[in-house]
Design a protein around this nucleic acid. Structure first.
Lengths: 237, 237
DNA sequence: CGACAAATTAACCCGATGGATAAATACTGT
DNA sequence: ACAGTATTTATCCATCGGGTTAATTTGTCG
């Protein structure tokens, strides 16, 4: 458990070593993709010898798969904590959006890994039995929330939970994952605290507005909350 | 101009060669990322000698940048064709969503390239003067559409056009770009014609519902259009 | 036709990289 | 304390891969 006191040439710490290796590999794969990742760099970052990678995990591909599986396990674990059953439907959706968004912010490597895996057409994921067993608990949760929402009158529509889940993930994922190019193109920092808060608000507003029919908060950057847009008479359809 | 008749060992065709090289490079970079791309493979796909890449374009990085710039030019050009000024606001938004979605479907390499560039933190894009000049014409277009929509009463809210643009791109981009992993996780083919139609419908419904307040089409996969969900009395907030 | 430049090919260089092996060192149980 | 195993270090090697050099062919213009 705790580190031994006597520091000689090196100490034994297989579990710790394995963790450091996986962490370093995660960074490396996230930063450079599969092809760009360098095994030597991983060893170096892990404070280990290259031989250790093979000893504790395996070759480059094994390493990548282990990282990927770990990443999925982690998010699925956190997702499970968050049970939305007890919230009323709009709050549940808001919480789901909030969680997803913040998870992505807290785990940027996860985004990069997903992109990398998709570039590889999910060929590793397809092989991984472990990941295939971990389906997101959200789909059933969302189905339930939507049904409850429709029944209670909070929601106007019974959307497909898979579509909704993908949309919620999409709104945050794309923004964060593509923030580098988007920032260049729009000439606007998208990762400042203010910008991120704005984005979260926009996403929640968009989704809830579509589901409930309540109007989303309306403002444009720069001109803070223009005096409440008064509802113009509805146009006869 | 036209191909010469006499076929000896090879014909001269600098412009054609350059195009073939760029096309091959696009495929390769899109399929394998920067680090995974192989210069020899590009040459082979282009039906050229490796030396040709350096002769006509430059080294690997130059090649990548040329591809990236070309990709941006292409989408910006198509965007410009599509002027939304003359449509009424809801139609304009629908058309924008439809165009973006179908552009992504028609140009899967574009998605991959964007992901690749974001993995590299847009470092090439930042350097490229060419791309920085090509800001998307959509932002101003959208601002205009939104304003018109608010004025006409079609829209309830004046959303930030940048947020809206990002959201529209996000809904389609994420779905397509991550379809490989999502398909595995949901155990459901997301790329069939039917699934794609459904997705488009969902996206349009979601965005327009949020903007206009009209209810989005409601159905869940499998159970086609359940008899119209009758609006239950609104819950007192 | 004949030379001169442009376009293309063929061959090679060399450092980087993934992967593997053998030797050294620390820990564990007895 | 000692044997035996788990863990780590130090090298090694074949291959790959980006990039370059030099020779070869083709078109063109006088």
């Amino acid at each position: 458990m705790a580190k031994r006191k006597r520091v000689l040439k090196w100490q034994r710490d297989p579990e710790g070593m394995r963790l450091r290796i996986l962490e370093a590999a995660k960074q490396e794969f996230a930063a450079h993709g599969i092809g760009g990742a360098r095994v030597d760099r991983i060893a170096q970052k892990a404070g280990a010898n290259k031989r250790m990678l093979y000893y504790h995990v395996g070759n480059k591909e094994d390493l990548y798969l282990a990282v990927l599986e770990g990443a999925y396990e982690k998010i699925r674990a956190e997702e499970r904590e968050l049970d939305l059953e007890h919230l009323d439907p709009p709050q549940a959706i808001e919480r789901l959006i909030d969680f997803t968004w913040n998870y992505f912010i807290r785990n940027p490597e996860f985004l990069a890994l997903l992109n990398t895996e998709n570039l590889a057409q999910a060929k590793h994921l397809k092989r991984s039995t472990r990941v295939k067993l971990m389906h997101s608990p959200f789909v059933e949760m969302i189905r339930d929330v939507v049904q409850r929402g429709v029944k209670s009158g909070d929601f106007r529509v019974a959307v497909d939970p898979v579509q909704l889940y993908i949309s919620i993930a999409a709104l945050g994922f794309f923004y964060l994952s593509n923030s580098a190019t988007l920032s260049v193109i729009f000439g606007r920092d998208l990762l400042g605290k203010e910008a991120k808060d704005e984005r979260l608000q926009h996403m929640v507003g968009l989704v809830l507005a579509a589901l409930t029919g309540e109007a989303m908060p309306s403002f444009e950057r720069g001109r803070e909350f223009p005096e409440k847009v008064q509802p113009p008479e509805r146009r006869t359809a």
